[in-house]
Amino acid sequence: MRMRCGCLSRAGWIAVNTFVEAARQRFFAFLVLLGAGMAGAGVYLRAFDFGGSELKFVADFGFGGMFLFGAILAVVLPAQVFFSEMDNRTALPLLARPVRRWEFLAGKFFGVWVLLGVFVVLLGCVLGVMLRLRAGELAVAAVETGREAPFLSEWGLVVFCLLQWLRLGVVAALGVVVCSFARSFLYAVVVTALAALVCQLRGMGQVAFAREDAAGWVRVLAGGAGRMVPDLQVFDLGVPLVLQPGGVAWEVVASAAGHGALYLPVLLGLGVWFFVDREI
C-alpha cells in the first residue's frame, strides 16, 4: 500500500512540476489568448454567416478554436516537456533515484493533460459567456418579432468541454507514445501531428476505402488499419449538445467518452513499454 502511494506520489510530483513548467511557457499563454480571442470574436464575425443559425455559427467558431489550438498544445507540449528533460540531462539524476520510468512518463502525461484541462475550461468560459450574451439578445428580439427564442444549454457546453478534454488527452497520449522512442523534438512533433491527423480523418478514411465497389483486400486493410487508431471525430458533438434540445442521446455521449477514456491507458501502456528499455 505504501509502495503504491509512493508511486502515485512520485508520479504526482512529476505531474505537478510538469504542469508548472508547461504553464509558465509563453507558448501556452499565447495559444490561450489566441483561442480565447477566436472564441470571443465569433460574435463579431457573424457577418460571414449566410442565413444559418447565428448561435450555431458563433459556437462552431469557438469549438473550432478550442480543438485547433488545443490540438497544437497537445502535440507540442508533451514533446517539449519530455525533451527538455532529455536535452538538459535532468532526466538522468531523476531516473537514477527510485523513480520508475512509468512514473516519469505518467507524470509527464498527467501534467500536460491537466494543463490542457485548464485550457479547455478557459476557452469554454469565454465561449459560454459570449453565447449566453448573444442568446439573451436574440431572445429579446425573438419576443419582439413573435418568434421562438434560441435554445442554449450550459450543461451541454460543460459536457462538450469534458469531451474535448478527453479528446486532447488522447492526442497528448499519442505524443507520449511517440516521445517514448523519438530521438528529437522535431521528429516527435511532426509524427504526433500526423498521427493526430490520421485519427481525425479515420472515420472519413474508413468510409472512403471501405465502399462496396472497393476491392476486397482494400476493405480488409482499411478496416484493420482503421481499428489501429482512435477516432477523434466521435467527439464532434458540440452543436447538438449545446444548441439542440435533445440533439444527441446520452448513450452517444457516453460512447464517445468511453472510446477516449479506454484508449488512454492503452496508449500510455505502449508508451511505457517503449520507454522502459530506452537509452537516455
Binding site: K56, F61, G64, F67, L68, L232, Q233
Partner: peptide, 9 residues
C-alpha cells in the same frame, strides 16, 4: 477533418 469545429465558416 482537421478543423472539425470550423465547418460553418
Amino acid at each position: 477533418g482537421v478543423f472539425g469545429g470550423f465547418r460553418a465558416i
